[in-house]
Design a protein around this nucleic acid. Sequence first.
DNA 1: CAAGGTAATAACTTTTGAGTATAATAAAAT
DNA 2: ATTTTATTATACTCAAAAGTTATTACCTTG
Lengths: 101, 101
Amino acid sequence: MNNEAIKDSSAVGRSWEEVRKEIFTSEEIAESNLRVALIGEIIKARQEKGISQKKLEELSGVKQPIIARMEKGSTSPQLDTILKVLAPLGKTLAIVPLEQK
Amino acid sequence: MNNEAIKDSSAVGRSWEEVRKEIFTSEEIAESNLRVALIGEIIKARQEKGISQKKLEELSGVKQPIIARMEKGSTSPQLDTILKVLAPLGKTLAIVPLEQK
DNA sequence: CAAGGTAATAACTTTTGAGTATAATAAAAT
DNA sequence: ATTTTATTATACTCAAAAGTTATTACCTTG
């Protein structure tokens, strides 16, 4: 995706959020939001422990570039990868009810 | 993996669990257990709703064969795939503390 | 402004999951 | 009982994530 074009959308009078709604379905947006929120929690958990990506590579066995891509949201990581990264942070995944607002 | 050989391990006096501990690290076993537990919850959620894999394909956009393999535990699905499947079941993923026993 | 660690990116190979089509199995119905 | 019909599993191709290695920004701090 072209990030320059995205930033420039404001130049033609529309916010990125407006453009986004035209390009993606509401399901895609909802899912993307969930993904971003989950990844955000992983980043927070890592930073709260004061652990670098390199250190987390040692602890989890997942390579630093993978962790970087995962945190940047440029991949949709596999379940195993997420679980490996979460374990040394003292976290795991759980299935919970979806509350819609 | 050869399931016949696994079942036959009892014939030489060792349980599958014993053999498993020799083949895999404790981290791998813990992760696998988590994965199985999570997948189990997805299967349960689907069956409680009385929805077939085919129907869930319609609702989630994830193809039936993917759902089948996911439930069989023969793949480690991507985060997107899990979220897509969970959404129509009224569920989502959350990061929770890992309690060890 | 060097030196250190940290995170991001890139290029490339290997591995594995997703998509497609089809087959096997199970359940219903006649 | 055998012919649908629904449901789940398999085989194959293609796309994408993981792994590998190296490099490059990015900061902070001496």
